[in-house]
Design a protein around this nucleic acid. Structure first.
Lengths: 169, 169
DNA sequence: TATTGTTATACTCTATAACTATA
DNA sequence: TATAGTTATAGAGTATAACAATA
């Protein structure tokens, strides 16, 4: 067993498994988190110009694309709890980007409708996001980007299936 | 301009850009977040058996692999602020997984050293993590996984370069 | 009874500012 | 003056539980 020895910035690390470098680098979770963090930092900077956060941006896009959906459907789409959509929807409503409309069919529910200002801000934010991502994606070929996104979809699906199998037991 | 119409779960969405489906699906950030969330849910379940969270797990792995490093180096490695390492290191020390040793060279600093219990728990947690990831990675070929991880690295690097260029202005 | 939106609350993760002890 | 660790605190982001109105 290797003994503990002082490390410095330039040291080459050898772990207990004989791999060079940081052994976390073989993990998908580690690499996904690092890549996402870097993309996320860019997105936050992009959205700051529109006074949006990632969650308000995502919510606005969903409402623009699925006009009329209910808050509970928005929660599902964002993968968060219904309770947490309240403040998000409040913020978008107060800024005049979307509106809550009572539905005649079910008086418990609201239909979320984008305003024209909301559709406009959404389109401009998405354009800025797309422009930033285009710069980043330039490190791969167009085919490479397409493949990467497809692979991420497969990984997500596989991870969900594995998770379901594990939580059923 | 398409008018707002009620959406339901089975509706096919057409956005203002003429793309079928959810237009966020063309964004790397969106796909990275979804894939990471699914992997992360599995990792949390895996780590629960060892009473570790993602951040304490990562910290333990770094200390095991770079025995003797200082807390500020750990903060750099984890990409968090020095201040936040205190509670994390406290937790690992209190559980007997690592120890804080005063360095003779610099009496301000601590050297973080894994205990044998810490090395053992780390190895077992990593083995469980690896087993879970192997199940998920099975949705791609071995070559596909290697390529995916390489692409994620390129994306991270490109995103960091783009971010630096944007923040310098 | 079940569901929609809501309120209150708590916990995790992370950042910032200010302190202490060393350098 | 600068750095390592620390403390206190605040702000996101998210989860759970309980409630009123409605189905």
């Amino acid at each position: 067993m290797p003994t503990a020895s002082p490390a410095d910035d330039s040291s080459v690390i050898k772990d207990d498994f004989g791999n060079p470098g940081n052994s976390l680098e073989a993990f998908l979770g580690y690499n996904l988190k690092r890549a996402f963090n870097a993309i996320h930092a860019n997105l936050m900077l992009t959205l700051r110009a529109f006074d949006l956060r990632m969650v308000t941006y995502s919510a606005l896009v969903v409402v623009v694309e699925r006009a009329g959906l209910r808050q509970s459907q928005l929660a599902d789409a964002l993968g968060i709890e219904r309770a947490n959509t309240v403040a998000i929807v409040d913020e978008l409503v107060n800024r005049g980007l979307i509106s809550r409309e009572r539905t005649p069919a079910d008086r418990r529910a609201y239909a979320l409708i984008p305003t024209s200002a909301g559709r406009d801000l959404c389109a401009r934010a998405m354009a800025a996001d797309r422009a930033c991502e285009a710069q980043i994606k330039a490190c791969l070929t167009q085919e490479g980007v397409r493949r990467l996104i497809a692979d991420l979809g497969r990984i997500e699906e596989a991870a969900q299936i594995v998770l379901e199998a594990r939580t059923k037991n």
